[in-house]
Design a protein around this nucleic acid. Structure first.
Lengths: 179, 179
DNA sequence: GGAATTCGATACACACTGTAGCGTAATGGC
DNA sequence: GCCATTACGCTACAGTGTGTATCGAATTCC
């Protein structure tokens, strides 16, 4: 059923995503789906997590800047593909369903935020990044830019992510490392 | 009818937003609404534009950095209020309706992008901002961060916007002006 | 004052939701 | 091997919203 839900979200998009459609496609009775998922949102988010989780690269090269760039690139690569369509659908669903919003935050958004924060803080500690770096804002900007491109249907690839990372990092590097 | 649509989106949110509900609330027949708007999305976006347009501040203080900060603050202020709820609903609608997506981009997203780009380019020309500034990415980051906070239901106010602007500007200022 | 337009009201076919009830097949413990 | 539990398919149902068609009444324009 998760496969069917994923396939529908990737193919037809949120417009054609209904319990009915998932049931038909997966060859399962509608009642069976209701038995397992309380709402459309929870089904969507679970199918997203199923298909997305293993695609991120948390490098540890010794340079926080490089690791940051690598992470953003892997994010862009993942969200630029089919999973991006699913992610956008989940975010859209979350606008009319607090439960979905909460689930998405807890299962995806916050963990990602925490990992990124740890990565940047390591850079601050090592002296590579400026000591007064406003980590939450940098993450808002980075993740936000990805959201923005994703939800406005613009392309999302490694090259774009690399440029974004470089642009952001210019304000993050410690004075002694700046170009 | 636009007032009714706006009020519903602000109050109940996207969940309770239906042609039916707008008709009932505005005391109008459902058929009349269908006569004027081809889709739910076009109704939502028009009610958004009606209630939002006049709220942005395009300052011209002589400093691009200050103007950028001011613009971001006014955006945050506007989107942090009731209109933000409506904007989020429109973006969500746009995920299942290409027409809505296109309309939102043409009527809101792109003009805002263009104005911001002009503002930043003026800073580049005046020498306040670095000559190799990647303007599109800075805008992606700034606008994206706003989107992100908006769509994940996080607060959005002037103080946050000011910190965001400062964080971004650190990577934008020309070497001679840097702190 | 007559024509054109716009509206309200009703009706209809359709799709999806969410719940309930019932019979059936598989599973797992003893 | 038997029996209880569990999960499933199927059907039915009431409710809500969609989108279209039709028609008479009200309003506006000239």
């Amino acid at each position: 059923m998760l496969d069917a839900a994923y396939a529908i979200l990737v193919g037809v998009g949120l417009a054609g995503f209904s319990i009915e459609a998932v049931a038909t496609r997966s060859g399962v009775a509608r009642t069976t789906i209701y038995r397992w998922w309380p709402s459309k949102g929870s089904l969507a988010i679970e199918s997203f997590l199923e298909g997305f989780r293993p695609q991120l690269t948390y490098a540890d090269s010794g340079s926080s800047a490089d690791d940051f760039r690598t992470l953003l690139q892997s994010l862009a690569r993942a969200l630029g593909g089919p999973a991006g369509q699913v992610a956008a659908s989940v975010v859209a669903q979350a606008q009319s369903d607090d439960e979905t919003r909460r689930a998405f935050r807890d299962a995806f958004s916050e963990p990602l935020r925490r990992s990124t924060a740890a990565l940047l803080r390591a850079g601050v500690d090592s002296g590579e990044l400026r000591s007064d770096l406003d980590v939450p804002r940098v993450i808002d900007a980075a993740v936000g830019a990805l959201y923005f491109r994703l939800l406005t249907g613009q392309s999302l690839d490694r090259a774009w992510a690399a440029h974004l990372a470089d642009t952001l990092l210019r304000g993050c590097l410690a004075p002694s490392v700046r170009r």
